[in-house]
């Protein structure tokens, strides 16, 4: 029973990881930028949704409006900042996204203050009691929304004309230019879509855990996800997101208590702390050493 309950909690948070990771991979594929600011997009999306909800807009309209605003912000970041950094070194590009993260956090701090805010209920409260397993509507809704959107996005990417141009740009920029694709527009679209996805992810996180600046940490949590899935694989990010969510839940619910029982018996260590946060990173290191392109990634040139 415990296992099932943990699996459900894991899948629900995992679906949000997947959403965030999807955005990071999308940007990386298209523009080669590793975006540390993805967590900031999630946070900003959550705060903007909150602002919209406070205007007594219907929940659907509010979240959609927030996503639209996020898309504009995403595209603007690309146009105003990242586009000027095409020739910069990797470390500079990483740092510029970190600078964005710091800036957006400070912006939210200035506007909404440092305290945690109760996020309005957009889904009905309460839970389904399913043979001793509790499933809250929040979880169901977060899971359903995140998954639907991710799959819808994958379909869009796979089957539409814009999707085709996106893939083409990601595959080979020069070839894309040669056949007349407006590459820089495609890159802007990728950033816009990615920021919008992150915005929705942030809003979902806020319904699950309340609204605060810490939502931006999700960006760093998502990194093991994308590496394990493969930096350039959207499907990989999706699957790895779910896997890591479940893995985290099981670590927290089963491995940690078991380990602690043993440790308390034999050592003076009382607690293994936030093991669930480290395991993904340990997995990441292992993955990098054994198969750096990730489970679903294509064999890259990054290995010597």
């Amino acid at each position: 029973m415990l296992g099932l309950q943990l699996a459900i909690a894991g899948v629900a948070t995992g679906s949000v990881y997947a959403l965030i990771a999807l955005g990071i991979v999308l940007i990386y594929k298209c523009s080669g930028v590793v975006n540390f600011a993805q967590g900031a997009y999630a946070m900003l999306g959550a705060y903007i949704s909150y602002f919209m909800l406070r205007l007594h807009l219907p929940a659907v309209v509010a979240v959609l409006a927030a996503m639209a605003i996020m898309a504009v912000i995403g595209a603007a970041t690309e146009r105003l900042i990242l586009r000027r950094m095409l020739k910069a070194q990797i470390v500079s590009v990483m740092m510029v996204t970190l600078g964005l993260l710091i800036f957006f956090r400070a912006l939210c701090l200035a506007v909404w203050g440092p305290d945690q805010i109760a996020f309005p209920q957009i889904f009905p409260a309460g839970s389904i009691d399913f043979a001793g397993v509790y499933i809250t509507y929040n979880y169901v809704a977060a899971f359903a929304l995140a998954t639907t959107l991710s799959v819808a996005f994958l379909c869009f990417y796979q089957f539409t004309a814009i999707g085709l141009m996106q893939r083409c740009t990601a595959d080979n920029t020069r070839a894309a230019l040669a056949i007349g694709i407006h590459v820089s527009n495609q890159i802007s679209i990728a950033w816009a879509a990615s920021a919008a996805l992150a915005g929705l992810g942030g809003a979902l996180l806020a319904t699950l855990g309340g609204l605060s600046l810490t939502i931006s940490d999700i960006g760093l949590v998502a990194f093991p996800v994308i590496v394990v899935g493969g930096l350039d694989s959207l499907v990989g990010a999706l699957i790895a997101g779910f896997l890591l969510g479940v893995l985290e839940a099981f670590t927290e619910g089963m491995l940690t208590p078991a380990l602690e029982t043993v440790l308390r018996k034999f050592t003076s260590i009382d607690s293994v702390g936030a093991l669930q946060q480290v395991i993904p990173y340990a997995l990441l290191v292992l993955m990098l050493l054994l198969r750096p392109q990730g489970i679903f990634g294509r064999r890259g040139v990054e290995r010597v």
Partner: peptide
């Protein structure tokens, strides 16, 4: 024990 910025402690509650 839980993380001081934990957003979800379902697993701990089950424990």
């Amino acid at each position: 024990e839980y993380r001081y910025d934990a957003q979800d402690v379902t697993a701990q509650m089950l424990r």
